[in-house]
């Protein structure tokens, strides 16, 4: 397990730290040193809310090494209210329970399935919104 690499990634993996261009307000995840929109290099830290909406999803039957749960994981393209998108695993959901457009929220989970030895890699995944937050999402939608 590449310890230094995952150590460096804590702020984005644990907290969805993004960046926002101070000049034009464009937002980026992962954070970037230069704004793609206006070229500014004055980008500031932005912590994302963790809310999102499924734009597209797929059930993966042929996983990468270290990601096999034996039954097929869900990967989704997620749109965030801060004006950006990311790709992440979905968790706490059966394939039949999720569809595009669904509101999801970020949780921190174990990313890999081969962690009995070495570092446990924690990072963001998304799941259907739980509880009252779900009702809120539904009302605002």
């Amino acid at each position: 397990m590449e310890l230094p690499r995952y150590h460096r990634l804590r702020s984005t993996f644990y907290r969805l730290q993004a960046s926002r261009c101070a000049a034009c307000q464009a937002t980026y995840f992962p954070p970037r040193p230069y704004c793609l929109h206006c070229g500014s290099r004055n980008l500031e830290e932005l912590r994302l809310s963790g809310r999102g909406r499924v734009l597209s999803l797929t059930r993966v039957y042929q996983p990468s090494r270290g990601f096999s749960d034996g039954v097929g994981t869900l990967t989704a393209l997620i749109e965030l209210p801060e004006g950006l998108r990311l790709i992440a695993q979905l968790t706490d959901v059966e394939p039949a329970e999720v569809e595009t457009g669904q509101e999801v929220e970020m949780v921190v989970r174990r990313l890999r399935t081969d962690e009995e030895q070495g570092l446990i890699v924690y990072g963001y995944k998304f799941r259907p919104v739980v509880g009252a937050r779900a009702a809120e999402g539904a009302n605002s939608a």
Partner: peptide, 14 residues
Amino acid sequence: DADYEAAHGVTFTA
């Protein structure tokens, strides 16, 4: 992207 796609188990086919 190794850190933001592959490290999350996102395969090429996915």
